[in-house]
Simulated scan of single mutants.
Amino acid sequence: MVAHIENLLTPDCENCQALCCVALAIDKGPEFALDKPAGMPCPNLRTDHRCKIHENLTDLGFGGCVRYSCLGAGQWVSALYGRETWRANPQNARPMMDDFATAREMRAALELLIAAARLPLPDALEEERQALITTITPGPEESRAALARWPETTKPRHQAFLVSLRAVVSH
């Protein structure tokens, strides 16, 4: 099960609508060669959701793109919308960007839950860890509900779990 869960954290750009290239703001500096506001497509993004400078990102000043990982959030959200791309259906752009931000938070939480498996967790904390993993890695039919639950229910529960790890880590 752990290997399957860890695979969820691997970005699959071939099955994504380049959500990171649209949703994220970038600031010109050592990691990025230009400024781009959130919600605007990167000027290097082709209409097929591929980067026209992908082979030369670092050389052209986009090392931040090389190092960024959406932790699999991009392909998850893209799959939720199926063939409904933000380009073909601009009304989907804002909901997709919002879902991408939430999904990225959820995947970061999953990454921490996987790491917590290396701790000597008491049974109650291990059960909570497993329950949280199940909650934030839903099947396709439950994905929208999981995204909706995250801010109000699951995120606070995850944060409380992380706080409870202090007792384990401090020993």
Results as ranks from 00 to 15, higher is better:
residue 152 E to M: 05
residue 99 D to A: 14
residue 93 A to S: 12
residue 68 Y to N: 01
residue 45 L to Q: 04
residue 21 C to H: 00
residue 152 E to K: 06
residue 3 A to I: 06
residue 98 D to A: 14
residue 43 P to K: 13
residue 104 R to T: 14
residue 146 A to P: 01
residue 82 G to P: 04
residue 137 T to F: 04
residue 27 D to T: 15
residue 103 A to N: 02
residue 72 G to Y: 00
residue 95 P to M: 05
residue 19 L to V: 07
residue 92 N to V: 07
residue 156 P to T: 04
residue 61 G to F: 04
residue 26 I to K: 00
residue 133 I to T: 04
residue 137 T to S: 10
residue 56 N to M: 05
residue 30 P to I: 05
residue 70 C to N: 01
residue 133 I to F: 05
residue 79 A to D: 08
residue 147 L to P: 01
residue 63 G to Y: 00
residue 168 V to D: 11
residue 144 R to A: 14
residue 79 A to P: 02
residue 159 Q to K: 12
residue 59 D to E: 13
residue 105 E to R: 07
residue 36 K to P: 01
residue 124 A to M: 09
residue 100 F to E: 03
residue 40 M to F: 10
residue 66 V to P: 01
residue 163 V to K: 14
residue 21 C to P: 00
residue 57 L to P: 02
residue 11 P to I: 00
residue 75 Q to C: 13
residue 44 N to Q: 12
residue 18 A to N: 01
residue 92 N to M: 10
residue 8 L to T: 06
residue 84 E to L: 12
residue 86 W to S: 08
residue 35 D to E: 11
residue 163 V to M: 12
residue 159 Q to W: 07
residue 2 V to W: 10
residue 170 S to N: 11
residue 76 W to V: 13
residue 109 A to T: 02
residue 110 L to H: 01
residue 85 T to P: 03
residue 40 M to H: 12
residue 131 A to K: 13
